[in-house]
Every structure is written in C-alpha cells, then in structure tokens.
C-alpha cells in the first residue's frame, strides 16, 4: 500500500515541477489524468479496507450472534458496497481523464490548440469527479471500519454468550511420513521460527538436527539430584546414628568409621533422588502436566499419537505472519493445513 502511493506521487511531483513554467493544455491534461488515476487507486484501497472491515464484522457476528453485531455487520457491509460503487466510479472517471489526456496530447502534437484545450478541460473535469468518488469511497470505508469496531466491541462484551470468542493460536500442518516431516522441519527451522514444534507418535530420530534443538540439559539435573541423594544419605546416617543419637551395637563405630555399612543406603538414595530428579526434570523441561493446550482444539491432531506427523507454529512466534507462515507451511506440502483457534479468556 505504501509503495503504491509513493509511485503515484512521482508523476504529480514531476508535473508540479514542470508547472513552474506556463503549463500547456497537454501538460494540464496529463496532470489531471495522473491525479484521476491516483484518486481511483485511493478509492480502490478504501474499498479494500471497507471490504476487510465488513468481513471482520461478519466474522464477529458469526462468533457472537447478537443484534449489535448483526447491525454493525450490516452497516459495514453496506458501507463496503458503497465504497465499491465509489471505487468503480473513480476508476471510470480516471479512465475518461486518461482518454482525454491522450487525445489532448494527440491534438497538441497536431498543433490543434483549441482541441487540446477542450480535451484538457474534459480531463480536468473527469479528474475532479474521480477525486470526489475517491473521497466518497474513503468516507464509506471509514464508515465500514467504524461499524466493524462496533461489531468488535459487541463481540468482546458478549464473551460468554453464545459461542465463545476465539483467536488464532497456531498453524497445524499434517504430514504422512517422518521423511516429509523432517524436510518440513528443516524449512521451518531455516525460516527462523522459534515457537514451533514437531508432533510425532514416537520419537523420530534426526529431528533434533532438523529442528535445530540444542542438546537437553536433563542429564545435568539428574546428576545434581543424584549427588544431593548421596550427600543426604551420608548426612542422614551421620545425623541419626552418630550426632543426634548414637546407636552403638556390638561396639562398632558410629562415625565415618562405619563407612562400609553406609554404602548400600548411599547407593539407594543416590538412585532414588536421581530418579526423582529425572522425572521432575522431564516435567519441568517439557512444562508438563499441561492438560489444556490450544493444539487440542484440532480434532485432526488426535492422529498425532497414532500414525500422523505434525508441525505446529504458534501465533506467539516473533516471525509469525498469517500469510507468510501459511505460505511457508504450504510450500512443505502438508497433507492437511489448519489454523487452530483457541478460546479467549
């Protein structure tokens, strides 16, 4: 959109520059035609905005069917229609202006000043009409956006009534084979996504690389937990049987001299705490248990624990973009692609 207006600005600037001298009829006509063209483009842009607003308003109505959303959606729809009509008008006028400018240029080339002046006038008039239509389109578009905002507000205030409100949560792409999944994963990895994941019914080897995952630190956690177990066994036995309350049996030592008798329990506690460390380490790193997750909204996803392979890219990713992400996933040829929405709240 921004690029379009920039391009449109150029001829206008040029013509004003040329206009420093006495502008010829041909030049005036060309200028008018360019202006009309720009106005038509603006009108088209306004129409698009109005249409989008109308679509979103309709979406709001679909999710939260109520009087307010229905009215707002209707209003937006009407405004969008109006903007469309205006845009067509502007386009027609721009065509007329263009045509007149062409004729003026031809006449000027032939040296027919009067004809050129007449065409130039026509072009000016057409350009004015185009500008007006564009203004009207803009107004209609503003109206549509206004209506859409109303619909949005109505939707947000109506959460809990009827259908709950939803927002996009992630893209879910399904693949038939681990090979396809690995290839797709590499593409997603190379595109620089971070909040994304592969979902497989069993651990697929090679995906660590394909996803670009750093090695897990679980071993470190388990090791620390095991050492805590070892030390706590020594301290426990020493505290209970030596410091707090020495139990002397058969005249045997109670302190560190009793080391051999401490070994079995040192070993068992090391194992026990390593086990706990590993269990809680897995749960911590995997952020489980997490019984509710937007990905479960997809019914298709139930095959992820059977025989299908999935890639999910979350909306929260910095690089996430509705269109680009979709295009990226489409380029990996998934057997199914879905935008999964989650409830707001």
């Amino acid at each position: 959109m921004a690029d379009d207006t920039k391009d449109d600005d150029k001829p206008r600037k040029k013509s004003t520059l040329l206009g420093v001298g006495a502008p010829s009829a041909e030049e005036i006509a060309a200028d008018a035609a360019a202006k009309a063209e720009a106005a038509a483009d603006d009108a088209k842009a306004s129409e698009r905005l109005a249409e989008r607003a109308a679509r979103e308003a309709a979406d709001d109505e679909k999710h939260v069917p109520s009087k307010v959303t229905k009215a707002a959606a209707g209003e937006a729809e009407a405004a969008a229609d109006e903007a469309e009509v205006d845009a067509v008008k502007a386009r027609t006028s721009a065509e007329v202006a263009k045509d007149a400018a062409k004729k003026a240029a031809k006449a000027a080339a032939k040296g027919d000043e009067a004809a050129a002046a007449a065409e130039s006038k026509k072009a000016l008039e057409a350009s004015e009409r185009a500008a007006e239509a564009s203004k009207a389109a803009k107004a209609a578009s503003a109206q549509a956006i206004e209506a859409q905002k109303k619909a949005d507000a109505a939707r947000i205030s109506h959460v809990g009534e009827g259908e709950p409100e939803k927002r996009p949560a992630l893209y879910l792409a399904e693949y038939e084979s681990p090979e396809a999944l690995a290839e797709a994963a590499k593409k997603v990895r190379d595109a620089g996504y971070e909040k994304w994941d592969c979902h497989t019914p069993y651990p697929v080897h090679g995906l660590d690389d394909a996803m670009g995952l750093p090695p897990t630190k679980l071993g470190f956690v388990s090791f620390i937990a095991g050492m805590v177990g070892l030390v706590s066994a020594v301290l426990m036995i020493q505290y209970m049987n030596n410091w707090d309350y020495p139990i002397i049996i058969g005249g045997k030592p109670t302190g560190i001299g009793a080391f051999p008798s401490m070994v079995p329990i040192m070993f068992e506690l090391t194992i026990l705490l390593t086990g706990f460390g590993t269990l809680f380490g897995i749960l911590h790193f995997a952020k489980l248990p997490r019984h509710h997750h937007p990905i479960f909204e997809s019914d298709r996803f139930e095959a992820a624990t059977d025989d299908k392979f999935f890639i999910s890219i979350e909306v929260g990713d910095q690089k996430f973009d509705m269109k680009k992400t979709r295009a990226l996933l489409e380029s990996t040829e998934p057997s199914y692609l879905e935008l999964v929405e989650e409830e707001i709240g």
Partner: peptide, 12 residues
C-alpha cells in the same frame, strides 16, 4: 498429563 507428542518433549 497433556502429552502432545511434541518433539521438544521427546528430546528430554
């Protein structure tokens, strides 16, 4: 526990 076959989980 809300297992979703995530490879980030499989890794750990």
């Amino acid at each position: 526990l809300g297992w979703r076959g995530s490879h980030r989980h499989w890794q750990h």
